[in-house]
Design a binder for these strands. Structure first.
Length: 259
DNA sequence: ATGCCGTGGAAACCACGA
């Protein structure tokens, strides 16, 4: 089973690129972030026509997440991250697909830091860590994936010294991420490529993609049950070079789907 | 060190992203 994550940066503007990539790579499960569309404007017909079922949680202007599957039923578990009834952002969906619990997330950016947006990010990470602990305690195959807006280490960014005060890389962010990982999650892409520079995002300006001045912020966290099922993974880097591309590239893993 | 680009929504600029 091939599972992918893709921050599309606006599904309306990205639809041709998304469909082209789906046709080219045929992932079985796709988690999308930054739909930037209200619930009623999700292009369900076009997604269905490409061969995918979808559940989504939209929001006007910002955020928005979706889970797509090809020939697999989706059993929705929830569409908000538990822990804060005041939080109105569409940033989390959870569903069971093919026996795996998939937590699909768009973690807050948090800039400028410090400030209220950074406080929100850290609180959101605390809530995610609580939910992740609950999922871990189920002793079931669980996958947390999406745009984490966290650069785990200095090896995951071009010129880390420029990012030490940024919400994606500052010490509190990395500490919070390490606390989550300490529950026993495995960073699938880093496990597959322990010694390679891997980026999943390149800013639109300053020819960052052409210069490979990127970040690795889109991740797959595997619960222990899935570690031995991981057979491959990578970044569909070339998609970032297409016309009208997102600033993120799709990232994917392949799991040996015997349960 | 920086929003230089891109998107959406409202309004012909601004918020937001990372």
């Amino acid at each position: 089973m091939k599972i992918a994550t893709y921050n599309v940066n606006g599904i309306s503007s990205r639809l041709p690129v998304l469909i082209r990539w789906l046709n080219e790579t045929s992932p079985d499960v796709v988690c999308l972030q930054e739909l930037k569309a209200p619930q009623e404007n999700f292009p369900e017909a076009a997604i269905n026509e490409a061969g995918y079922n979808a559940i989504w949680h939209g929001q006007k202007s910002w955020n928005g997440v979706a889970i797509l599957t090809r020939n697999l039923p989706i059993e929705e578990i929830c569409r908000i991250l538990p822990g804060d009834p005041e939080d109105s952002h569409s940033r989390y969906m959870e569903a069971k697909v093919n026996g795996i619990i998939v937590g699909a997330l768009y973690l807050p950016n948090g800039n400028p830091a410090p400030g209220p947006k950074y406080d929100y990010k850290l609180k959101w990470m605390d809530r995610l860590t609580l939910r992740a602990a609950e999922l871990m305690s189920l002793d079931a195959p669980v996958l947390l994936t999406g745009d984490f807006n966290v650069i785990p280490t200095g090896f995951d960014v071009y010129k880390p010294e420029r990012w030490v005060k940024d919400a994606l890389f500052r010490e509190e962010t990395r500490t919070a991420f390490e606390r989550l990982m300490g529950q026993g999650w495995t960073d699938a892409i880093r496990k597959l490529y322990p010694n390679d520079v891997v980026y999943t995002f390149w800013d639109y300006f300053r020819n960052n993609y052409e210069r490979n001045a990127g970040l690795r912020i889109d991740h797959f966290l595997l619960s222990p049950h899935l570690i031995n099922k991981l057979v491959a993974g990578g970044v569909d880097r070339h998609v970032r070079g297409w016309e009208k591309s997102s600033d993120h590239a799709p990232v994917w893993i392949q799991l040996n789907d015997v349960f």
